[in-house]
Write a protein that binds this DNA or RNA. Structure first.
Length: 765
DNA sequence: ATGGACAATGTTTTT
DNA sequence: CATTGTCCAT
């Protein structure tokens, strides 16, 4: 499958010396080398506990750091890099550090920079996916795609699978694209090619067929999916000794964060990369493995010890983040998982406040309660909005919360890339850029060929596709040719009326393509937006159209940073942003995020909501013990994000499918000993009568700490506000009245108006 | 070719 | 319920 040409001779920098050469005599102690920055490093080491120090200054060879939550794992990792460079004189160029999110990578880079000043030039620090993309672009000669490949996101992947299923005349009911795609993705993560796909029945056979076709389409589009980035790189290193040696020699030290979340492809990749120097330093915690569904296998930790028998294992157990009360709850939850080495988490921070468990009547009340608790703290000035995080199992749960936050006026932010990059208008513009960058990308072509409408209907597209097939080229290339010289295309008459429109679009595309090197990504984007009248297309006079255009402008702003790095880098960044990456610490706002997105973060006060059977643990996990263990780990991750206070919330009923349904509290709650919790009913907080009688007797205890909370006044005199219809105005007065806020506003357009904050669509400017 | 109306269908987590 | 897809009328 992989066809590699004869290996090019590896280019090795002069400093790429094998182990045990003059550069490294073996294990050495901190500071016994002539480095540049020893005093600074040594000083810093004093702030580390003995285990952390041991990890940072460990000698050569494989190192496994088992790090509990809040144990200073990132610190050890960054400090280790600084130590290698600053004290051992390793050149940054020879260090590879891999993380799972761009955010983690950025943070690490920052910290290393802080430690070393400018000595980090050339350091390879990035996500698995980004590092692989870089290698693959560099080695594209040896690969069945070329260097300007695009990276398909989940939607693109799904369309490709759908097309394959359609082409093969399969029943979409039985072969659901999402399911088939998941199967393909799993296979890829296990490094199984279509030919290796294990077949035991008709379904497997069909999946393998779809897989084969899917893979062919990707190549035809000069595209790679997320899994391909890992898969192709792993295969490159596996099949080409020259390539393997090149990278394995170069990376004298390989460091890996969140090692428990690696999948087979990543594991093999790491093994190859470390195959020359064997200096592989991995940090992880099996209890925080929460990406099984993505192929992650925490058993890679065990595999590591087996594959590298001389591994030095270091345990970090002291927690510097949470109070003991929080850690006790965390341990109570996680200890129920079988087959796990019991870890004793401890802290010197003291017990702190007890963890609270609150029951509410329904999910709406749950959201209201969380927001009101936050509001009361903020009003009392005992905490700021930025101190709080609200965590939930599924993204859908964010909605009620967001509504509640909006109503209260407490600043909040929602973590999630989908919110921006998933928008239609953003995807459109990105598709234009991708198409110019790589005209073979048919998914992007299909997306934009008639957006905005330019008289190229379905029929015309199909004819174009057939014609392309006949002339053995991609539709995009044909379109380009058509734009440059319409007469040169045989059979173009068959296009009929659409011909003119196609030529016109082809000319546009060719024009953009000609400018690709002359213009910055932003410049190119501007040209495209002008040439397609994209603004006019979006601007239908509605508020939504306005919003969409603003999103385009936001994308433009993001592109502005890529004048130097270029279009490829921009598109890659767009493809590889994660939800976590969209989180910025700036702005004093409460954070709403999924438990998955919460990994690696910490907050003074954490709410975990929706602790109900079917939600957490999720209903789709209930039957599978392995998945149940993962749900438990997920809760564990959430709990251990909290520094000072943790509030667990569940409701007795929730709105599901539009129906009001009773739900059981999460079974995980049963595992927390009663004495570790303060249990509270919600009736004292929520001024709603009907709630009271419904609380179960043994759980509901009034607590004096829960006084009724005031509604929060959102508007202040003097504020400028925007109204959906009346435009801008100034708040003259505002008061709370009957569960609502009454605001007097003077509008430029209509003069003085009195509005109810809950009804009028008001935004503060 | 385009847009609107209706029906079905499906709801984890994300690089 | 909310999104997505399909069909139908213009």
């Amino acid at each position: 499958m992989l066809c590699l040409p004869p290996p090019a001779s590896p280019i090795l920098p002069p400093s790429c010396l094998p182990p045990n050469s003059a550069n490294f005599g073996g294990t050495r102690e901190a500071g016994d080398d002539v480095g540049y920055n020893i005093p600074a490093i040594m000083e810093y080491l004093q702030d580390l506990n003995p285990q952390q120090q041991q990890a940072v200054t460990a000698g050569l060879g494989p190192i496994l750091v088992l790090a509990g939550p809040g144990s200073g794992k990132t610190r050890v990792l960054t400090q280790r890099i600084a130590y290698l460079i600053g004290s051992l004189g390793v050149r940054p160029y020879q260090i590879l550090a891999v993380t799972f999110t761009n955010k983690a990578a950025r943070e690490m880079e920052h910290r290393v920079m802080d430690l070393l000043g400018g000595e980090t030039q050339g350091l390879s620090l990035g996500t698995f996916h980004a590092n692989c993309a870089r290698i693959l672009r560099r080695e594209a000669e040896a690969m069945p795609f070329n260097a300007n490949f695009v990276i398909y996101d989940t939607d693109d992947q799904l369309s490709l699978v759908k097309n394959a299923i359609k082409d093969l005349n399969l029943d979409e009911k039985y072969f659901r694209p999402a399911g088939v795609h998941a199967a393909i993705s799993n296979a890829k993560n296990e490094l199984l090619l279509p030919d290796d796909y294990p077949i035991t029945n008709y379904r497997d056979e069909t999946v393998a067929t779809v897989y084969r076709r899917y893979q062919e389409s990707l190549l035809a589009n000069n595209a790679l999916d997320f899994d391909d980035l890992l898969l192709w790189t792993a295969f490159l290193l596996e099949e080409s000794p020259a390539a393997r040696e090149k990278y394995a020699r170069r990376y004298e030290h390989v460091l890996v964060d969140e090692f428990q979340d690696t999948n087979m492809a990543q594991y093999i990749l790491l093994k190859h990369l470390a195959s020359f120097h064997h200096n592989i330093f991995v940090v992880g915690d099996v209890d925080q493995s929460i990406y099984r569904w993505r192929g992650a296998d925490y058993r890679n930790v065990l595999r590591f010890e087996r594959d590298f028998p001389d591994t030095q294992t270091i345990l970090l157990e002291q927690n510097y983040r949470s109070t003991q009360s929080i850690l006790d709850v965390a341990m109570a939850v996680i200890d129920r998982n079988p087959q796990r080495a019991r870890k004793q988490l401890f802290t010197e921070r003291g017990m702190g406040e007890k963890v609270r468990l609150i029951e509410t009547e329904d999910d709406q009340e749950e959201a209201a309660l969380v927001v009101e608790k936050i509001a009361s703290q903020v009003l009392k000035k005992t905490a700021q909005p930025g101190d709080f995080a609200v965590m939930y199992r599924t993204n859908a749960q964010s909605r009620l919360l967001e509504e509640a936050f909006l109503k209260s006026g407490i600043p909040h932010k929602l973590v999630g890339a989908q919110r921006f990059y998933g928008r239609r208008e953003v995807k459109d513009v990105v598709a234009y850029l991708r198409l110019v960058h790589n005209p073979q990308d048919e998914i992007s072509l299909t997306r934009v060929i008639n957006t905005p409408a330019r008289g190229i209907g379905n029929k015309t597209v199909i004819t174009l596709r057939t014609l392309a097939q006949q002339t053995k080229q991609s539709p995009g290339m044909l379109l380009l040719a058509l734009g440059q010289d319409p007469d040169s295309i045989p059979g173009s008459q068959s296009l009929g009326r659409g011909f003119q429109s196609l030529c016109k679009f082809g000319t546009l595309l060719a024009g953009w393509k000609a400018q690709i090197n002359a213009l910055s990504p932003m410049g190119l984007m501007d040209r495209i937006l002008t040439d397609t009248d994209y603004h006019e297309y979006l601007d239908d006079g509605s508020e939504e159209g306005q919003e969409r255009w603003e999103n385009v402008i936001e994308l433009r702003r993001l592109a502005a940073d890529f004048a130097e790095k270029g279009l490829t880098a921009f598109l890659e960044q767009v493809a590889l942003v994660s939800d976590q990456d969209t989180l910025d610490a700036s702005g004093n706002a409460a954070t709403l995020l999924t438990l998955h997105a919460a990994k690696g973060l910490e907050f003074p006060v954490v709410f975990i909501v929706g602790l109900a059977q079917g939600t957490l643990p999720h209903s789709r996990s209930l039957e599978d013990p392995e998945e149940m263990q993962e749900e438990r780990r997920l809760l564990y991750v959430g709990i251990t994000r909290a520094k000072d206070r943790l509030i667990l919330v569940y409701s007795r009923r929730r709105n599901l499918f539009g129906y009001y349904e009773p739900v059981e509290p999460s079974e995980f709650l049963d595992d927390i000993p009663d004495e570790l919790l303060t249990r509270t009913g919600a009736s004292m907080v929520i001024p709603r009568q009907r709630s009271v009688g419904l609380f179960s007797a043994q759980r509901w205890q009034p607590s004096s700490a829960d006084e009724a909370l005031p509604m929060v006044q959102r508007f202040q005199p003097g504020q400028r506000v925007e109204h959906g219809i009346w435009g801008e105005g100034m708040v003259l007065n505002s008061r709370l009245q009957d569960d609502d806020e009454v605001v007097d506003i003077f509008f430029e357009s209509v003069g003085l108006k009195r509005v109810a904050a809950s009804l009028a669509k008001l935004t503060i400017i």
